[in-house]
């Protein structure tokens, strides 16, 4: 799909979500639907869809060791293996997975290919910004999600209050600036910019790439607006969210319209999640190229559903045709007398 079409289609989709959310917020009669029913349904779709997707992946057999490597596999004792890049034991796999999930090591190795300035030669350069922005985006998102737990938990656990205080340690303005929200918005914005600005990334981008970005930017944007520009009644919001989390739904009056837009965007994100590329949240744990041991030199991996192949070995062939081979003057491994001996022994 043409990139402009992809961007426009995604913008229209997110725009439609924004319009529906605005209607939900503007019409008080729709508040129970948009404040309680849709979020709970979205959560159910998210959880059940996630489980369904993971189980559908678990149905795919992985008979061979297909770990991707960039290090020496364990083989002979005098060859030093690279335990992290090519893990041969379970714990080394755990180490590799943990570093992949927590620090995105494979993005760290991202390179770009371009023509050398010296002449028409291909040169490879280290391209770190994707890794930096991805780390910033994911950790800011995690922080924002954990901070939002203060709306859903009673009493509010001390670690969440501590995180809140750390996140807002700049103490600029009132309500104080919290860093993670801006980092989330900025990093997502950079990832969108990169997708649009780098021609080869733009070439492979589809609506499925733009839509989640626009959606997350809208979520972060409405969140920032509510905190810093058009303030909303936090106490009323907490009454609603706490009602959701304790399954005693209540829809207080006087909640700003932006809250319903924000909540509807999040509901759409949750419901969309299991059917989209965002499922890399679960998928990263199930990547056979990451979570298998690189032990193809240690073990012979046999495809377990290989059909039973009937082999006709040379011994059997000679047993069958020995007399005729001798007749034709062909050399045989065993003379008829030896063959009879060995047949008796067996």
């Amino acid at each position: 799909m043409n990139f402009l079409t992809s961007v426009i289609v995604s913008l229209i989709a997110v725009g439609a979500v924004l319009v529906v959310g605005t209607i939900g917020g503007a019409v008080p009669a729709l508040h129970p639907l948009f404040g309680v029913v849709i979020p709970l349904l979205a959560l159910a779709v998210f959880i059940l869809g996630f489980i369904w997707k993971v189980l559908s992946w678990a149905k795919s057999p992985v008979p061979f060791s297909i770990a991707t490597t960039c290090g020496q596999q364990k083989s002979l004792p005098w060859i030093k293996p690279d335990k992290l890049e090519n893990p041969s034991s379970k714990w080394h796999v755990v180490g590799r997975m943990a570093l992949e999930i927590l620090t995105f090591r494979s993005l760290f190795r991202n390179t770009k290919m371009q023509l050398d300035s010296q002449g028409p030669r291909i040169a490879y350069g280290w391209e770190l910004w994707l890794w930096v922005a991805a780390l910033a985006f994911h950790y800011a998102f995690l922080t924002v999600v954990i901070r939002h737990l203060r709306f859903f938990l009673e009493p509010i656990p001390a670690p969440i209050q501590l995180l809140d205080a750390l996140d807002g340690f700049l103490q600029i303005g009132l309500p104080g600036i919290i860093i993670s929200g801006f980092v989330l918005f900025g990093a997502a914005g950079y990832l969108l910019f990169r997708r649009l600005a780098v021609s080869n990334v733009r070439y492979i981008s589809l609506p499925a790439d733009y839509f989640p970005l626009f959606l997350i930017l809208s979520i972060a944007g409405t969140g920032l607006i509510m905190r810093y520009v058009v303030h909303v009644d936090i106490v009323a919001i907490r009454e609603l969210t706490l009602g959701l989390a304790s399954l005693h739904p209540s829809v207080p009056e006087g909640i700003g319209i932006f809250f319903f837009i924000h909540l509807f965007l999040v509901s759409v994100l949750l419901a969309y999640f299991p059917f989209s590329k965002l499922m890399h949240l679960g998928g990263i744990f199930m990547s056979p190229t990451r979570n298998l041991r690189g032990n193809s030199r240690e073990f012979h991996h046999v495809n377990p559903w290989n059909p039973e192949v009937h082999l006709h070995t040379y011994e059997e062939y000679e047993d069958e045709f020995r007399d005729r081979m001798i007749e034709a003057g062909l050399p045989v491994d065993k003379m008829p007398a030896d063959a009879a001996d060995s047949a008796e022994k067996e």
Partner: peptide, 15 residues
């Protein structure tokens, strides 16, 4: 992902 549901144990907190 269902942490808030069992953390609050379904008890309503008055605003």
């Amino acid at each position: 992902f269902t942490f808030p549901l069992y953390y609050n144990m379904g008890k309503a907190t008055p605003p």
